[in-house]
Write a protein that binds this DNA or RNA. Structure first.
Lengths: 339, 339
DNA sequence: CTGTTAGCGCTTTCAC
DNA sequence: GTGAAAGCGCTAACAG
């Protein structure tokens, strides 16, 4: 039987009106205990299922939130999503997943279709800093749909964000290398037009300055977040007249590549060379030469982003809240930087 | 401006009827080019956005599918989801994520709320074999909502599934160990009430039989899928009067734990002991002693599951299709089993 | 080719 | 406490 039972069906059976049924189902206070009980019972008996679509259309609330990430099969993002889902599930929200593959066209498209689907909020990590998506983001804000950036954000009025303190992460990681006795510290930066990478770089720079280490532009290399990029960058570094003896990498994957290449060049880690990563990817602690890394507490970040959304959605005043949450990064110090 | 423009607004402005606007917007063939163009233009000018909720209520199609997994922050599952999303996105579907944490209560609850949300289909990997969820699954099938199991499935009428050939995976992995010269091969099985683990076990058993190796019940240990479980299981194995010299583990994590424990006991891998994992988790290839593993092609599995859904949804006849797709497992042979 | 009408399933005033 | 009626935004059948 493909038939749906509606509140009308149960109203008819009980010879009352659909409105009453609706009220009973929604625990409306002004309804007699007797009818409520009766309605609930027959609803169960008739296997009645609420149609949330109709409810949503009526109320203007879909009880869905959209989450937009570059790709879902990256541990950091899937962990954030897990945090979001766990926080929002008890509140009756469903999480809709969208991937951008770092493509702003798809980012824009995703935002648009989510808006068309009447999501109650959008949580996203932006792909890059192109201005192209500004209008559509502005549109979301204008429509009073809560928008929360996590990790990779953009400065925009009316948009809240949850990030970690990347500057401090970079600073502390670099300081750890300095404490380990490293004197010539290189840095693998990501795309520095993104705040997160720029801030990690700045933290690195500040630590060098604070501890009186020389700042060498040749030591800063922009890499992608993958193993090969790390290997190539190391090759470049080793060809310098005065090669470094440590790397703070903005990416765990690049850090791994660096370690592989260093080993192949007969360089001993951590004795002769230390490496610090960023992201605390699961593999960093599984390696025999475990990699020190900055943890971004993605689960917490997801939970927090969800909480900010819930706050925003329950804000009945017409005031726009713009909340900036900054989580503390936590160092995971492992073998690659311990001596 | 929080105002939504509806087709009525644009109808009024153009002094035509909403139905015409709707038709123009939906590229209905019987509409004049002139009006279509006019409508499209003013729609754009008025910043009209389609309300998919209303459309859905009307059509009975939400354009959402639900995906239920134990947890999303496991590489296998997030990769499957990526595959699903990538296949379904071009078709205009959104993917709603639900996690069960291996808890059948939550599994049932998730199915129910997804049904209430009028999803057009459900793709899921079941948590365990308890019969508790049978009625609600049956309900999905009865309502003619396509249901597709991936990886962890249950035998149920009217439900399609996409899995890999776990038997063959187990068989080939074991054969690889035998080919490497291992003679006493142990097996870490998961919860064998789940088909996937039972089949991996059977493949292992068959390979032993086919190649004339002794079958020893003490060599088969049920482990959870984590590092510590693997360590403990090895401890047990090493205390046997005649310990094994190889392990085929149904879990990469347990395989890793096994390797760690073996090393600490001074056992050389792969020289004295070989290990084969299952799942091809990213870390298996990053380790210096890389771990051989059976790849489950999760991306492909997700794509396939999505395709089966699309097939099912476009099936206008009232015939129930039940499609069973079985993907070939692929061995990734690495250092831990090569000598 | 376009207008009229009805209705998807639900909630929410406004009466009584 | 309950009923009547309207409407969320859209589409499809039926006319013309």
């Amino acid at each position: 039987m493909d038939q749906k039972t509606t509140i009308y069906d149960i109203a008819k059976k009980l010879d009352i009106t659909a409105a009453t049924v609706s009220r009973a189902l929604n625990n409306n206070p002004k309804i007699s205990e007797a009818t409520r009980k009766l309605v609930l019972e027959t609803a169960a008996k008739m296997n009645y299922k609420q149609n949330r679509l109709a409810q949503s259309l009526r109320s203007g609330k879909s009880n869905n939130v959209g989450v937009i990430v570059p790709r879902i099969d990256v541990n950091f993002f899937s962990s954030v999503i897990r945090g979001i889902e766990e926080e929002l599930h008890p509140e009756g929200y469903h999480v809709i997943i969208c991937q951008t593959h770092e493509d702003e066209k798809r980012e824009i498209e995703n935002i648009t279709t989510l808006m068309n689907a009447q999501v109650d909020g959008i949580l996203m990590s932006i792909s890059n800093m192109s201005k192209e998506n500004d209008p559509v983001i502005k549109h979301v804000v204008d429509k009073n749909v809560p928008l929360i950036f996590f990790d990779r954000k953009k400065k925009m009025d009316g948009v809240s964000s949850v990030t970690i303190d990347d500057f401090e992460g970079g600073y502390l990681a670099t300081k750890n290398l300095i404490d380990a006795g490293c004197t010539r510290i290189a840095h693998f930066s990501g795309d520095r037009s993104l705040e997160i990478y720029e801030n990690r770089f700045k933290g690195y720079e500040q630590a060098l300055k604070d501890f009186g280490l020389e700042w060498n532009p040749d030591y800063v290399i922009q890499t992608k977040s993958n193993v090969d990029a790390g290997r190539n960058a190391v090759t470049k570094l080793l060809s310098l007249p005065n090669p470094p003896n440590a790397i703070f990498s903005s990416s765990d994957f690049a850090a791994l590549g660096a370690i592989q290449e260093l080993k192949e060049n007969g360089i001993k880690i951590p004795e002769d060379f230390c490496v610090f990563g960023f992201g605390n990817e699961p593999f960093t602690r599984f390696l025999e030469l475990s990699i020190s890394s900055v943890d971004q507490s993605p689960l917490e970040m997801g939970r927090m982003a969800a909480k900010v959304f819930l706050e925003q959605i329950s804000n009945t005043d017409n005031i726009k809240i713009e909340k900036k949450v900054v989580l503390k990064p936590e160092l995971q110090i492992r073998k690659s930087s311990t001596r």
